[in-house]
Amino acid sequence: MEIKNLTTEQRNPATMHIDSMSTIDMVKTINQEDKKVAVAVGTQDDKIARAIDEAAKRYSKGGRLIYIGAGTSGRLGVLDAAELVPTYGIKPERAIGLIAGGKDAMYVAVEGAEDSQDLAKRDLKDLKLNKNDIVLGLAASGRTPYVIGGLDYAKAIGALTISIACVKDSKIGDHADIAIEAVVGPEAITGSTRMKAGTAQKMILNMISTGVMIKQGKIYENVMIDVKPTNSKLIDRACRIIHTTTGASTQKAKDTLKEANNDVGLAIVMLKTNCSLNQAKSLLETKNGNVAEVLNK
Rank of each mutant, 00 (worst) to 15 (best):
I134N: 10
I157L: 08
N132E: 15
D152E: 15
L129K: 00
K155I: 02
C166H: 03
A139F: 13
N130R: 14
G137C: 08
S141Q: 08
V147D: 00
V167G: 04
I164S: 02
L160K: 09
V147Q: 06
G137L: 02
R143C: 10
L151Y: 00
A156E: 14
V147N: 02
I148A: 12
S141L: 07
T161I: 03
I134W: 07
P145T: 06
Y146I: 09
I157P: 10
L138F: 11
V135Y: 07
A165R: 09
N130K: 14
V167Y: 00
L160M: 08
G150A: 07
T161Y: 04
A156Y: 02
P145L: 05
I164C: 05
A156D: 12
K155L: 11
V135R: 02
T161D: 07
P145M: 05
D133H: 09
D133T: 13
R143L: 09
Y153P: 08
A165Q: 01
A139G: 15
K128A: 13
D133C: 11
K131D: 15
T161C: 08
A156G: 07
K131A: 15
V135D: 01
Y153S: 05
V147F: 07
I148L: 12
S141C: 08
I157V: 15
S163P: 12
A159G: 02
K155S: 12
P145K: 10
R143I: 04
L127P: 12
G149I: 12
I164W: 04
G149M: 12
G149Y: 10
V167F: 01
T161G: 09
V167S: 01
L138S: 06
P145F: 05
Y146L: 10
S141P: 11
K168P: 04
D133A: 09
L129E: 05
G158E: 03
I148D: 01
I134H: 08
G137I: 05
L138Q: 04
